[in-house]
Structure formats: structure tokens, C-alpha cells
Nucleic acid binder design. Structure first.
Lengths: 133, 133
DNA sequence: CTTGACCCTGTAGTTGCTACAGGGTGCATA
DNA sequence: TATGCACCCTGTAGCAACTACAGGGTCAAG
């Protein structure tokens, strides 16, 4: 299949696919006579894997590691589980950060009591309040 | 005050402060005879504002807008409230995305049933499962 | 024979910093 | 007096993970 088809099949842009190839995260495609890239079902599977892992928040480096682990059926599950577990922790951390931000932002709206910012706490809450902890 | 003091006072790195000045998000400091930057309390207030807004997830462009609004005491509160409200929505969107990721990741761990990935669903769940919706 | 949808390479831009390299300043101590 | 040290300066390059061209080739349909 050609790069455009692969792009549509995986919800990836053509330029991102070429970028992944340059980065070596997916293997280089074969080339047809006209120099167009020609992808196999294995490429499709690899790219699907990459996109899903990226969508779960794994970095490119982590995706590389996951691909390496997944290449060998004898890889102990624990190796992958550890990466998944620490990604869950990272996600939880980010959720916590965002919830703290959300609370601060809601507090700003609550501080708004006037018609003009000169009469109202909304801007002061940014300028003067101690860092949220 | 000198740049290092300002940095400590605001929890910002010296290079970030210089970066903000280059970007025009904080006004350029006066210079002492030795060409060292010399900051006023107004600089401190502005930088505090900037850091807090950045910490709430506002982009540099949004921080610029907030600074412009906050410069005039007659700015209607509603103008700022709108930005805060849409930032809350953005944060909620991100929290939702992260929670979906978290659920997928937990599902991967649950799919793990073997000792080697060849016997266990943890990797297949990345390669074959349809996109999470 | 031209239009249009594809494909190619290569390079530069994005966001918000961070990290040098290579140099100057100014005070305290040996 | 020398020298160390913490601090400051400018300028440029790097990071992640793409995204967006510019400038060109390919190929089937009308």
C-alpha cells in the first residue's frame, strides 16, 4: 500500500509517517519503480502499535523500547507491565496537576465580584496570591 | 534587584527571565553601570503574574492578552472571565483525555495473563485493539 | 495534453524553554 | 597583589514530536 493509504488507515499524516521512518521508529518501506514507498501489512501493524502507544502518552524513546520488547515473544510480561505501570503513574501525576490548575481557575472566577477588573479580584488573584500548594 | 534575585524570588530560571524579556512578555530591565539588569518591584509583579498564568496553563499569547487586559482597571471583568472559563474547559478536556488514557493503560495490565508476552494480551492490546472511543 | 491527485526530498518553523560557549564584573580571601 | 568565586552578559544551538512548505516528479482520466 502507498503512504496515503497507510496514513488514512492509521489516522496519521503522511509527513508524520515519513518522520517516523527518518527517526527509525518504523522500518523504511520498500520502493516501487517510481520511487513511491510501498508498505506491507507488517508496516501497518507496526505503525498502528506506534500510534496507539503514542496516544497513551509514551514518548518516542519509550515506544522504541516497547517495540523492542514486543519483537520477542519470550519477553517477560513484567518488563512491559513495569512500563505500563509507570506510565499510569505519570498520567496520574498529570491529572493531579491539571486538577490543581482547575481548582485555581475556578477560584479566580469566584473571586470576581465587580464589573471592572479594578473592582474585582480576578486579576489580583494572579498577581498577588501565593503559589498554589 | 538583579536577575538572580528576581529568579529566586519568583522560582524562575535566569535564562527564562532573559527569554521573557527577549519575547517582550516582560519589559526590558534598566541597566546598571556594569550592564547588569536592574529590576523594579513592578518587574517582580509582572513576572509573578506571568509565572502564575503560565502555571495555570495559559499560553504565552494568552498571557500577553491577560497582561494587556490587566493593565487597565476599566477592563470589564467579563473579558478576563471568558479567558479563564475557556481555560477551564481546556483543562477539563485534557483531564478527560488523560482519564481515557489511564483507563486504557489499566486495561492493558488487566489483559496480562501470562509470563511471556507471547502468551499474554498486553502487547496485542496495543497492536490490535481498535482506537479507544 | 492538461488537470488533478498523488508521491518525492530537503529544510525550516512551532512552543517554551534549557544549555552551553566564551567572555566580563566585583568582592573576599591568601 | 593575585586569585578564586559567584555572579552577570550576549549569542547560538538543542529539545520533543511533529507540521508546513518549496520545488519537483508520476500517472491515470477527460
Amino acid at each position: 500500500m502507498r503512504i496515503g493509504e497507510l496514513a488514512r488507515a492509521t489516522g496519521t499524516s503522511v509527513e508524520t509517517i515519513r518522520y517516523y521512518e527518518r527517526e527509525g521508529i518504523i522500518p523504511a518501506a520498500d520502493r516501487a519503480d517510481n520511487n513511491y514507498r510501498d508498505y506491507s501489512p507488517e508496516h501497518l501493524a507496526t505503525l498502528t502499535f506506534v500510534r496507539r502507544a503514542r496516544g497513551l502518552g509514551f514518548s518516542m524513546a519509550q515506544v522504541r523500547a516497547l517495540l523492542a520488547l514486543s519483537a520477542d515473544a519470550d519477553t517477560p510480561c513484567a518488563d512491559v507491565d513495569r512500563m505500563v505501570q509507570s506510565q499510569i503513574e505519570e498520567v496520574d501525576r498529570r491529572i493531579g496537576d491539571l486538577e490543581a490548575m482547575r481548582a485555581q481557575l475556578s477560584g479566580m472566577l469566584a473571586a470576581c465580584g465587580g464589573r471592572r477588573i479594578g473592582d474585582c479580584g480576578v486579576v489580583e488573584s494572579l498577581a498577588n496570591r501565593p503559589p498554589a500548594n
